[in-house]
Design a binder for these strands. Structure first.
Length: 207
DNA sequence: CAAACGATCGGCT
DNA sequence: GCCGATCGTTTGC
């Protein structure tokens, strides 16, 4: 799987909305303390400075927190939301261009049992995976062991505990839906931009 | 230094 | 559906 790690060029493109769409179907993997967990990305959102009011770096606002977003594409921007949730974003575009993609949901592939433990959920009894395990950005991070301590790490270097792989399977355009992003009602006209993408016909997307 | 505010979640009604 | 939890970041006084 590491051999199919997404190359720098994938992240360096300037069209973050396109990258958000293309991240659907890619595999998000963590290997923390030798424990591997992974899942197929099923829901994303694009955030784009300077014109997107919902982006933390709106107006190219540069602070200690947003600094990572200004770095070269291919790193993780992880921040704390509501004092509880560690939200995982993929930094894209060349240095000085603050774009990022929030990963909102995945479909578990490896390490399901560890995910249940990390989430504090009772282990499944039937064959079906509880969709709540990895739907919603806070849940994704918790299930994969991602936290703000990993903010800024590279997704490209061979020894990174977090990376994204391409299995070679892309979703067809007709299998993808788009709509307004979640929880950004404060951001004026930007709130209506259809920069949220999700896979049709999968239970692993939050309603 | 104080205070307001989230790119949310889960429990309870 | 509604609501409280919980704390780092940011901004304003």
């Amino acid at each position: 799987m590491k051999t199919h790690r997404l190359p720098p060029e994938f992240y360096l493109r300037t069209d973050v909305v396109l990258v958000a769409r293309e991240l659907l179907g890619k595999i998000l993997i963590t290997e923390i303390n030798g424990i591997r967990t992974s899942g197929r990305i099923t829901e994303t959102e694009a955030y784009r400075a300077p014109d997107d009011r919902a982006c933390h770096a709106f107006g190219n606002l540069r602070t200690a927190r947003t600094e990572v977003m200004f770095q070269e594409g291919g790193r993780a921007y992880i921040y704390l939301c509501y004092g509880i949730h560690h939200l995982f974003n993929v930094v894209t575009a060349p240095q000085e261009t603050a774009h990022a993609v929030l990963i909102r949901a995945i479909e578990p592939i490896e390490g399901e049992d560890v995910m249940y433990e990390r989430r504090g959920l009772p282990k499944k009894i039937s064959g079906k995976i509880l969709t709540r395990l990895t739907t919603g950005p806070g849940s994704v991070s918790k299930a994969l062991g991602i936290h703000t301590g990993l903010n800024g790490i590279s997704l490209l270097s061979g020894d990174s505990p977090v990376w994204i792989a391409d299995e070679g399977r892309a979703y067809l355009p007709e299998d993808i839906q788009s709509g307004p992003r979640i929880g950004i009602d404060y951001s004026g006209e930007c709130a209506a931009w259809p920069w949220r993408f999700w896979v049709k016909n999968t239970p692993f997307v939050k309603k």
